[in-house]
Amino acid sequence: MTPAQLVQQWVDAFNNADAGALEAMYATDAVNHQMPNHAVHGKEAIGQMFRNEFAMASEMHCIPVQIIEQGNWAVLEWRDPKGFGGCGFFEIKNNLIQTQRGYWDKLSFYKLHNIPLPQ
């Protein structure tokens, strides 16, 4: 499977709010760092992160604008149905996500989804 194909499967699982399927796509020692947040280390912690996020904002949906592949990396430019957008970088090793970094505006996301701002 190519990195771009794996990222497309990731998008499908994300859009189905399937935290278990997402967790299965990560290496045991994977790191997911959504830049507005602290890095999350380990497959199980990443799965829990998705469970928490889906519970907090049930309307999350990823529409790929483009997926670009270079070597063992894939870049996902995305938007959601409300026009909110961002970008994710996925390093793939042995058909699993080893590293993921995401860039998006947390304040805009919270406001768009009516999530109370942390104090």
Rank of each mutant, 00 (worst) to 15 (best):
G20K: 11
G20L: 07
A21Q: 13
L22E: 00
L22M: 08
L22G: 01
E23N: 03
E23H: 06
E23A: 08
A24V: 05
A24P: 03
A24L: 06
A24Q: 13
M25I: 02
M25Q: 13
M25E: 00
Y26T: 07
Y26H: 15
Y26F: 15
Y26I: 09
A27F: 08
A27Y: 08
T28D: 15
T28I: 04
D29R: 11
D29I: 03
D29H: 10
D29W: 02
D29Y: 02
A30D: 08
A30C: 11
A30V: 11
V31K: 04
V31H: 01
V31T: 13
N32R: 12
H33C: 05
H33E: 07
H33Q: 08
H33L: 04
Q34N: 13
Q34C: 07
M35P: 00
M35R: 09
M35T: 10
P36H: 08
P36F: 07
P36S: 11
P36L: 10
P36Y: 07
N37C: 01
N37G: 01
N37A: 05
N37T: 00
N37Y: 06
N37K: 05
N37W: 08
H38W: 02
H38K: 13
H38A: 15
A39R: 04
A39I: 09
A39K: 06
A39Q: 03
V40T: 11
V40G: 03
H41K: 12
H41D: 01
G42V: 01
G42T: 00
G42Q: 05
G42A: 05
K43M: 12
K43H: 07
K43N: 09
K43G: 02
K43V: 00
K43D: 01
E44T: 13
E44K: 12
E44G: 02
E44V: 14
A45E: 11
A45I: 04
I46P: 01
I46H: 09
I46V: 06
I46T: 05
G47I: 00
G47H: 03
G47W: 00
G47R: 02
G47D: 03
Q48S: 11
Q48E: 15
Q48C: 04
Q48W: 04
M49N: 11
M49L: 13
M49T: 03
M49I: 00
M49G: 10
M49Y: 13
F50L: 06
F50A: 11
R51Y: 01
R51K: 15
R51F: 02
R51C: 04
N52Y: 04
N52S: 14
N52W: 04
E53I: 05
E53Y: 04
E53R: 10
E53A: 15
E53T: 09
F54S: 06
F54Y: 14
F54V: 04
F54E: 04
F54L: 09
F54A: 10
F54R: 10
A55P: 06
A55F: 01
A55Q: 12
M56S: 14
M56N: 12
S58I: 01
E59R: 14
E59H: 10
E59A: 15
